[in-house]
Design a protein around this nucleic acid. Structure first.
Lengths: 211, 211
DNA sequence: CGCTCGTTTGATATATTTCAAGAATTGTGG
DNA sequence: CCACAATTCTTGAAATATATCAAACGAGCG
């Protein structure tokens, strides 16, 4: 491996390159984005609902999740992110965050000023398009999430979530389709599929008994 | 009113102008997008899940909704659109549609080639940014939708949907906050909030009895 | 007038929640 | 390496919100 491949922002290049063809020049422009590495503990908040974030960050290791609370104490997990995902383009571009972003497990992030990303996007249309795609793909995941939470019973709901994961993890080179590691508690899983921890547990248990 | 204000794509300028300051030059560039007007009947499909749409369209009158089906016959409405919304930027930019788009009521649309929109977005960063914002705001609505469907009971769920509407309708100059017209059947409402038509009816009825 | 579509209502079934408490696992300081 | 605290997981019984099935009712429309 050359040093360039080992650049801290390499996962970003890889991710953006999934949607559009990016050349060496594009890659170098991305590598010139100023950034700051930081280690974050499990459970640590990256953004609070209502914040006005000025930075976006690239997830280098560990897992991140977004969530939102309803008035009456219910929490809903909106998405889970893994290595290579660009967190918070939404919140920082929109100005004020409409949900929380929190570390699911300990991990590393590269913090980048939004302004730099925005400038780059319009200076280099190929990169801009790739970033736009990235947000569109996220939209597509949200749509699937709505369907999942809205129209499936407990078993298929959990099943679909786990499958979505299998595929994304493989795409991110983080495991095989048939086996991967996700450090999530049943309570968090419940918040993701909009069920009760107790019911998730029972359902999971019934699945195990069968296969 | 001057003729320019009455240009068919005026609602698009207005909508995009909500997020970014757009000048007269920007407006004129938008007005140069080639388009084709078409009247669509209630229930008519604009895009089918799996299509590879080459066009996006601007909704000029009437209402549109997006929906998606789970394997076992359940249908989930993902969003409802009104005058000024740009439909299908998602599907056409992503290449293949991951959901259906259908007329809720009869209305008019302006059909535009995606390529023209994409070119304009990168030729004119102000417009590009506004379009990007538009897709980000949509993401924000999806997040709210997930929370709504996932973590609220029937009454508050329906209430929130109706309120979201009140606000969007007012923003689009289509009614007062306290009163607006939405031609939706209870069955469609049920598909939007992920409940049974019967249960929506009962809940609505109980709300009426109280206020 | 008769038809279709949407709404309303009732009785019953079921999935999921709630409450509560005990077992198992993980982490932590001595 | 152990003991203790703190989560997390598991299990049970009872409550409840919502789904399902079925049928009557009403309004718009050709």
């Amino acid at each position: 491996m050359s040093e360039i491949v080992d650049h801290a922002l390499a996962p970003m290049v890889r991710k953006l390159g999934l949607w559009t063809e990016l050349g060496a020049a594009d890659r170098d422009q991305i590598y010139q984005i100023p950034y700051q590495l930081r280690h974050l503990d499990a459970g640590q908040y990256i953004v609070w609902d209502g914040d006005k974030p000025q930075n976006a960050c690239l997830l280098l290791s560990g897992f991140v999740y977004r969530h939102k609370s309803s008035g009456n104490g219910g929490r809903q997990i909106l998405s889970i992110h893994m290595k290579g995902d660009i967190i918070d383009l939404q919140n920082s571009l929109l100005g004020v965050a409409d949900h929380n972003v929190q570390m699911l497990s300990a991990g590393e992030v590269a913090i980048m000023p939004v302004q730099a990303l925005r400038d780059l996007a319009f200076r280099n249309p190929a990169i801009g398009m790739a970033m736009w795609y990235e947000t569109l793909v996220e939209g597509s995941i949200f749509r699937e999430w709505v369907l999942n939470v809205g129209r499936r019973d407990a078993r298929t709901r959990i099943g679909h979530l786990l499958c979505e994961f299998a595929m994304r993890m493989e795409a991110a080179h983080l495991g095989q389709q048939t086996s991967y590691e996700l450090p999530i508690t049943q309570e968090q899983l419940a918040d993701a599929v909009a069920l009760t921890p107790v019911h998730v547990n029972r359902t999971l248990w019934r699945c195990r008994r069968m296969g």
